[in-house]
Design a protein around this nucleic acid. Structure first.
Lengths: 271, 271
DNA sequence: TCAATAATGGACTATAAATTCCATTTTTTT
DNA sequence: AAAAAAATGGAATTTATAGTCCATTATTGA
C-alpha cells in the first residue's frame, strides 16, 4: 500500500466530509458531526479520544476515517498535523545539504531562501502576541529618545530601524560601536533602549542591556526564542524565530517585525 | 504514578526553560534552542521528530524533558496538547482576522507588512533571471576583493552582505561612508564592486559606480526596476521590486536575494 | 413475524512510539 | 597525564495506540 485516495488538503477534506455526510448511519453521522465541529482536535488527539468525543466506539471512528478515503486514522491525522506546523520541517538540514553539494545553482539557492522566508513570515504571525507588540509600541512611542543597538548579524536590522525612525522624525540614535566608541552615557532617564540580538548573542549588546536595566531604563528587545539571554533582564521581548542556514538567516520575518514596529511607533507619536 | 513536578502551564514551562538553559551541555542546549523556537511543534510531533529537528538522539531529548521536570516526553506533550486551542484556523484566515479586526493596531500593521513581504518574495522568484544571477555569482566569486556600497535605505542590505562574506572568508570591504571617508582608491583592478541602491538613489553610490566603471572594474548591482540609473553603466544588474506598504518597504525580497547571492558566492569560491 | 442485511461494540493483534539502559566518548578535575 | 565524572548514542524494552475481526444487535423489506 502506501498510496491513498484520501483528501490531500484541508479544503478537500471539508468537501469530502460534506459530500459524505448526507446519508450516514447513526454512529458514523455522530463522527461526522463531531469532526466537523472539532477539526482542530484531530491533530492532537488519539482515536480513542475522538471516538469518546463523538460518543462512539473507536472502531466506529476508524470506519469513519476509511469512508472519508483515508487508510486509517493516522493518515487523516497526518493531514492535520502537517497543515498545522506549516511547511518548514528541516530547512536547516535541507540547506545544509545544498551547501555540501555546493552544486546548487544560484537560482535553486534563491528558491530555497524564498521558501524559508515565506515560512518564517507565516510563523511570525503565529507566534507574535499582539499585546506584547502593543507594550513595545507604547514604551517606544513614549520615549524621549530611542537608542538602538544591534551588532553583527543584527546590525542590518538596527540600521534599518534607525533609518525608518529618522524618516519619521522619531528621535533615535544608532549605537553602532564604530571605532569601539561606547556611547552608553548618552542613554538618559526617559529614554528607551531597543536591543536587537540573535544567537550567537553579542556580548556588547547584552552588557549594554544589563547596565541600562540597572538604571531602571526600559528595554525593548527583538530576539530569537524565549531562551535568549535578554529574557533575564525583564525587557519587553519580541521573539522571532527564523529559519537559518548555518550562520545566516534571511531576516525576512525579523525585518517585517522591525518595520511594523517602527511604523507603529512613528504613527503613534505623531498623533 | 500520575505525579509530576513539571511545569503546569505554558508560562511556567517557558520560565523553567529559561532558568534551565543557562548551563546545559551541548546536546541538551540544542534541545532547548530547538524547543524554544518550535514550541508549537511539540503538540503534534513524536520524540523522534523533535530529536531530529534538534539534531540529537531521541534519548537525549528524553533526558531534556526530564530536566525540565516532566516524567518524560509524553507528559510534556500533554501540556501542549491540552493548551492547544489552535494557531488555527491557519495562516490566511488568521492574517485576514488580524487585518480586519485589529485595524490600526500594531498587529494589524504587522499583518500588512507580512503580506507585503510574502508578495514580494513571490514576485522575486518570478522576475529574477537565472542567468543573470549566475553571471553575478561568477563575477563576485572571481573577484580578488568585493567592495560593497549601499547607503541609507540600502545600508542594511550592504551591511548584511558584508557580514555574510566575512563569515564565509570571502574578502569583502564595506564602504560605509563613515565620517564621509571616501575609500574609492581601495578598489583595484581585479576587484568587483557590489552596488546596492534603490529609489531615491543616493548620489554617492551612483558616483562611485560611475568612477569605477570608467576604470573598467566590473560592477554587480542590486537595484529596483529597469529604470534604475545604474543601468546606464552596464553593470550586471539584479532587479528586485519590493511591494511596499505606505512609504516603507520591508526589504524581505531584497534580503533574500542578497543572502542567496552571498551564499552562492561563498560556496562557489571554496570549491 | 421472519429472514436478510447492515451497523455496531468490544476483544484481539500488530505496529509504532516512548522510555530505559548501558557501553562508549567526551569533558573536567587532580 | 591519568582518573573520575558527565554526557552521549544507539540498541533493547516497554507501553500505548492504531487498526482488524467477528459475534451480537439493530434495521429493513417481504
Amino acid at each position: 500500500m502506501g498510496e491513498t485516495g484520501g483528501p490531500a488538503t484541508i479544503k478537500a477534506f471539508e468537501e469530502r466530509l460534506l459530500e459524505v455526510s448526507e446519508d450516514l448511519p447513526k454512529r458514523l453521522r455522530q463522527c461526522a458531526d463531531y469532526v466537523a465541529a472539532n477539526k482542530d482536535r484531530i491533530a492532537v488527539s488519539t482515536v480513542a479520544e475522538m471516538a469518546e468525543g463523538a460518543g462512539v466506539q473507536p472502531s466506529a471512528f476508524m470506519r469513519f476515517c476509511q469512508i472519508l478515503g483515508f487508510s486509517g486514522f493516522s493518515e487523516m491525522q497526518r493531514l492535520f498535523r502537517d497543515s498545522y506546523v506549516g511547511g518548514w520541517p528541516d530547512y536547516s538540514t535541507r540547506l545544509h545539504h545544498l551547501r555540501e553539494k555546493a552544486e546548487g545553482s544560484p537560482s535553486a539557492l534563491l528558491a530555497e531562501f524564498v521558501e524559508a522566508g515565506r515560512a518564517s513570515l507565516e510563523n511570525l504571525l503565529k507566534t507574535i502576541e499582539p499585546q506584547t507588540i502593543e507594550q513595545a509600541v507604547q514604551a517606544l512611542a513614549g520615549a524621549h529618545m530611542i537608542h538602538i543597538i544591534g551588532l553583527r548579524r543584527s546590525f542590518p536590522v538596527a540600521s534599518y530601524m534607525a533609518y525608518a525612525f529618522e524618516k519619521m522624525d522619531v528621535p533615535a540614535m544608532l549605537h553602532s560601536a564604530v571605532g569601539r566608541l561606547d556611547n552608553r552615557n548618552a542613554i538618559r532617564s526617559g529614554d528607551v533602549l531597543l536591543a536587537i540580538t540573535f544567537s550567537p548573542y553579542s556580548s556588547e549588546t547584552i552588557e549594554l542591556v544589563e547596565s541600562v536595566r540597572e538604571r531602571g531604563i526600559p528595554v525593548v528587545a527583538l530576539t530569537d526564542t524565549i531562551v535568549s539571554p535578554l529574557r533575564k533582564f525583564d525587557a519587553i521581548a519580541l521573539s522571532v524565530s527564523e529559519v537559518d542556514f548555518g550562520a545566516f538567516r534571511s531576516l525576512s520575518a525579523t525585518l517585517c517585525l522591525a518595520i511594523a514596529l517602527s511604523v507603529a511607533v512613528g504613527t503613534r507619536r505623531s498623533v
